[in-house]
């Protein structure tokens, strides 16, 4: 049993890859190359994505054309910055691997690394 989120991801994935507005019919046909999925299911989920603010739509003839609000890269950058705590008040939610540093701290880090690199190199040379 696939989750709703999987189908959402499949739809977004196609729209991002095609990089042009598309109809639900086009998306269904493309997904159907790999697995059967009902038109109404895809239409429902596409509507959910539109409702959540992930997609824009415009009418062409009788069909709706859907396109992503922002590029995958733009979403990824916003998420990363969020996750890394660059937007305020996310401290409690997520733990970033390293936090921001000043230039001096970076220089000190570099120096600390170089020193051990040299020591390791010497140890190898000695042995």
């Amino acid at each position: 049993m696939r989750r709703l989120g999987d189908l959402e991801a499949e739809i977004m994935d196609r729209l991002w890859t095609w990089n042009r507005p598309a109809t639900v019919r086009e998306i269904v046909d493309d997904i159907n190359r790999n697995r059967p999925v009902a038109y109404t299911t895809v239409m429902t989920v596409t509507n959910i994505l539109y409702g959540k603010g992930w997609l824009l739509r415009g009418k062409q003839g009788r069909a709706w054309l859907y396109s992503p609000v922002r590029s995958r890269e733009a979403y990824a950058a916003a998420l990363m910055e969020d996750g890394l705590g660059e937007s305020k008040d996310r401290r409690a939610a997520l733990v970033a691997f390293v936090e921001n540093m000043s230039d001096e701290e970076q220089a000190a880090l570099r120096k600390a690394l170089r020193n051990t690199g040299r020591q390791a190199g010497q140890a190898e040379a000695d042995s």
Partner: peptide
């Protein structure tokens, strides 16, 4: 956040 990460990543 996780929901968005699953869609984008």
């Amino acid at each position: 956040h996780r929901e968005a990460v699953d869609l984008v990543g």
